[in-house]
């Protein structure tokens, strides 16, 4: 099969970008989208041109590195997959395919289709953890956790941190990411002691990073390669509200300000 690519090319963070067209010919429908780009890039390199910079690594949908907007949808037309799991059989012979980077002020474009998503790391550093000093932990089975809770936590934990939620959201909101990360830990008994500070700090870091606000349209869930439910956003809202009220009224030890 044959397709025409309209690809966003931008030399660096400050450069003015533009779309360029490339023909990709002799494609096998069983090629992945990234393998198709490999073929295009081999040709560009051979022709002495700069190949298209594209973020990728594991190519099996788990590392969360790949991040392209394909024909107006993060990770392309199929549901529940990443860019690397998108196959050419999802397109028709002769299609024109528009490829853009994920766009948000919090995710500046570094080159072509590669964006900088360190804002997610900052959010995690603010509270996306359970404090558990190495070596200080009780026996794993000393704390039974019901299967339903464990499974729900796993649903949230499946997040690969790709940023498709931000890319799909009309407001560039990171709520699905933050709610999945906080939700996983808030659901589990181990996560209870730090629950309030976790949500308050993670949301503060999220706002600080310049993401937009959630307007409950759930584009994030629809675009999520792991199909994480917007229910976690609801849970984050609830946890946040409770934490705000509680932290305003609760008794504090004298050692705390």
């Amino acid at each position: 099969m044959k397709v025409t690519l309209r690809v966003w090319r931008q030399e660096n963070e400050t450069a003015q970008g533009r779309f360029e067209e490339y023909e990709a010919d002799n494609l096998n429908p069983n090629m992945s989208f990234l393998e198709m780009l490999d073929v295009v890039n081999e040709k560009l390199t051979g022709d002495g041109k700069d190949p298209i910079a594209v973020a990728h690594d594991c190519r099996e949908g788990i590392c969360g590195t790949c991040s392209s907007m394909i024909n107006g949808e993060p990770h392309g037309p199929e549901n529940g997959v990443t860019t690397c799991q998108t196959y050419m059989r999802s397109f028709n012979d002769g299609d024109v395919i528009t490829v853009e980077p994920f766009r948000a002020e919090a995710f500046p474009v570094l080159k072509d289709l590669i964006t900088d998503r360190k804002a997610f790391d900052k959010i995690m550093q603010a509270g996306g953890f359970i404090t558990a000093r190495t070596g200080s932990c009780q026996d794993a089975n000393a704390l039974p956790i019901g299967k339903e809770v464990a499974d729900l936590a796993m649903d949230a934990a499946a997040c690969v941190g790709c940023g498709a939620c931000v890319a799909a959201c009309k407001n560039s909101s990171a709520m699905l990411f933050v709610s999945a990360k906080a939700g996983q830990l808030n659901l589990l008994p181990q996560g209870q002691p730090e629950k309030d500070t976790r949500v308050l700090n993670m949301v503060a870091a999220m706002d600080e990073a310049g993401f937009g606000n959630c307007t409950n349209q759930y584009e994030c869930s629809a675009a999520c390669p792991k199909e994480i439910s917007e229910e976690f956003i609801s849970k984050l809202n609830r946890d946040y509200l409770i934490a705000s009220v509680r932290s305003s009224v609760k008794a504090k030890p004298t050692t705390m300000k």
Binding site: G72, E100, R103, K170, S172, S173, F211, G212, E219
Partner: peptide, 17 residues
């Protein structure tokens, strides 16, 4: 929300909203 994405997409589909 406007400030969170100053440069928009060439094409963006609505998935579910």
């Amino acid at each position: 929300n406007r400030a969170a994405r100053k440069k928009g997409y060439q094409s963006q589909k609505t998935l579910r909203a």
